[in-house]
Amino acid sequence: MNLFDYKRPSSIADAVAAGAEPGAAYLAGGTNLLDLMKVGARKPDVLVDISRLPGLGEIETLQDGSVRIGALVRNSDLARDAGFAKAYPAVAEALLSGASAQLRNAATVGGNLMQQTRCLYFYDQQSRCNRRQPGAGCDAIGGETGKHAVLGWTKQCIATHPSDFCVALAALDASVELQGPDGARSVSLEEFYTLPTEDTPGGADVRPGELVTALTLPADAAHFAGHARYIKLRDRTSYAFAIVSAAAMADISDGVVQDIRIAMGGVAARPWRARAAEAALKSKAPTPELISAAAEAALADASPSGDNAYKIELAKRLVHRAIEQALAGTPQTIPALPGSVFAAQAAGR
């Protein structure tokens, strides 16, 4: 990696001041940033180490019932927080289905939000990539595209967002708190990721110097604890990114879906909320036909960006499965193989 300066500010204000300098990058767990620096996809001049900043490591329930998760909470600590996992079981399961235990121990929730796409062509520094260099072109198009986007892509970029965690968060209407040189702001997690347009590649909407300080789940996010699942289809039983994934969470009373949330991962440059699918089931008594209609609706706008039409069919089936499993009720404990399609098999042992 290139030579860089290293700073470890002791307050958020100092961090943001340092982070606003040109060429600065924030370092927390480092599991994604250092990897990108090693391959040369990121070449910061200054690393602003925020890993010890005070006040960003708490999981707090606020007076209005919402939950605020400090950006420096480690992925594993959040997933293992008993209160959190009970209230938001699909979020915990999504977290535990991602990466490896070692990476989850190091990676922070803020870093999880800020992680870059795993597009092979983003990583291959010889390839043209609009995300790395706007206007350069996209060598993924026409290349090895089996894992690329089927929703919300353009000729600018067909990459997907790799996070599991964010899929579950998007379903729960999470928002992201940022602190920048011009003050604090909050943005919905879904909109935090801009989709590619005809002219721009999209990516996380972070302004110069802005630091993710927290994630917030609104009070109503806890209504789904009883019927929540995250399922992740992958080509290795563990330690693999999703081909497609789906979170489904329902609030059910009297046999009627009072509210339902559905989001997909591995299909687009952002965790993809499937609102049409939600509408197909909301305020209804679920039937197999309705679930199928919801799954169809979730992918109604999908189109292959390459050799990946199969992902559309898989995503439909996965949404279907996630809804079914959510309606069946949250498992008593997180399965031994979190998020796995083999979770049931594992539970049976």
Binding site: L120, S127, G143
Partner: peptide
Amino acid sequence: GIHDLRSGRPIN
């Protein structure tokens, strides 16, 4: 082992 058919580079 996946090689990009255009560039010939191993990309995974």
